[in-house]
Design a protein around this nucleic acid. Sequence first.
DNA 1: ATGTCTTTGTGAACGCGTGCACAAAGATAG
DNA 2: CTATCTTTGTGCACGCGTTCACAAAGACAT
Lengths: 256, 256
Amino acid sequence: MATGRTHRPATRSRGIPEATVARLPLYLRALTALSERSVPTVSSEELAAAAGVNSAKLRKDFSYLGSYGTRGVGYDVEYLVYQISRELGLTQDWPVVIVGIGNLGAALANYGGFASRGFRVAALIDADPAMAGKPVAGIAVQHTDELEHIIEDNGVSIGVIATPAGAAQQVCERLVAAGVTSILNFAPTVLSVPDGVDVRKVDLSIELQILAFHEQRKAGEETGHESAAPAPVADAGAVEAGRKGPDGDVPAVMPA
Amino acid sequence: MATGRTHRPATRSRGIPEATVARLPLYLRALTALSERSVPTVSSEELAAAAGVNSAKLRKDFSYLGSYGTRGVGYDVEYLVYQISRELGLTQDWPVVIVGIGNLGAALANYGGFASRGFRVAALIDADPAMAGKPVAGIAVQHTDELEHIIEDNGVSIGVIATPAGAAQQVCERLVAAGVTSILNFAPTVLSVPDGVDVRKVDLSIELQILAFHEQRKAGEETGHESAAPAPVADAGAVEAGRKGPDGDVPAVMPA
DNA sequence: ATGTCTTTGTGAACGCGTGCACAAAGATAG
DNA sequence: CTATCTTTGTGCACGCGTTCACAAAGACAT
């Protein structure tokens, strides 16, 4: 998982567990694919396989939405697509602003899946005056000065932050002050926001580090240490990848 | 949270809970910042605030690594940076390949946080012959034909998939066959992999949909429906954002 | 050396999420 | 109409993760 919810500790929304909400988009995607192939119905087993989850879990997830299946048959694909879309709020239009049009921001602006499913890029915003007016993904970039103006005029409630880490908190505060209540943060920083504002983060660096942890573990087991004692460590990994730094006792100095 | 772990149901690695592993990078980042400011020690309270978590949780997390704190004082910043780095496997070099050099792939290649902390972009791979040889982020893009060759020669065990959804599973299989055992997937598809291979996914579209769900909920509460009954729904949201589609009973047709 | 004060490390309780396993419900055939 | 077969919906138990609250440990002053 690349993100983590912030705030809202156990405030299960309307009885639908957070874990279930996080899977609904997955089901929706699988269902949309079936719909395009004109498949009329699916069983929980088939759909679960397509979404990569357990069928019992899927049935329980759907049970939170209501009884939309038919016993002995399965679920009506079209109907379920509609119900999930509605539950997720995708039957309405969500204008979104992207702040920080660097490599990543531009990539996001160009991302096709963005436009689909009710999301619409209302504006691209960047602090660099040289960027202003330049078209990215067919939309002219606007200067940060316009931020509040844009949010209010378009009724934007979802903001995407793709700025450098240093600027993220400040941008966040301006977005929130202007009326944004949901933020998707790509900057490698912890954002602090007032209650009522949702933040989800996507952090490449964290994901890689988690993978590295497991990778190291696999390599360690492979070469023999079964580690029952607290810490044999010290020479973990070094698999076939040559290089293995001077694993001394001096704290490694970490850039950025 | 933007991603979700796949496989490895309850295989707690070496006694360190998965949830803790996922937070270690967060602590490391906060600690690194402190280190750069030459702060010698931190209390669990301070560090927890910086990382955006509960102090009790942080202490319990650290307790899985060992007793690295001093009661009455706190934690030695440098020492902790080193211990966490070692635990995460960041004291060694991790060559990484990025497959799919479109907008996103290029953004990832240019991402600074990539190079830091032991990760090194070993190669950029794309299926488009026209891309071959073109430099992106100072590295010449190589053709997909070279994939197996590159993986083996560089001892790559971590792969990043930034291809279109349609190509992801196939690329994944080739990566795994060539020896990659950890995959970070940016393509909006469920990847199926053999046991022993870790997959983490980052999915923009899913994140937005989760935000939309909560956003809709907030808007609904605001305008009055406290929803005790199963489903008053139907006119959720439409806040001040003008547009509100014909919210009829015909299943919405979803592009892509 | 003794006492006070701060902060860690953890035992215990609780709640959420998952998965099993089965009863209920409906389709379908005879 | 009855029997059989399929598939949903869910009660229940279990395990992980979070949080509280406090005892133990060490620093520091006297």
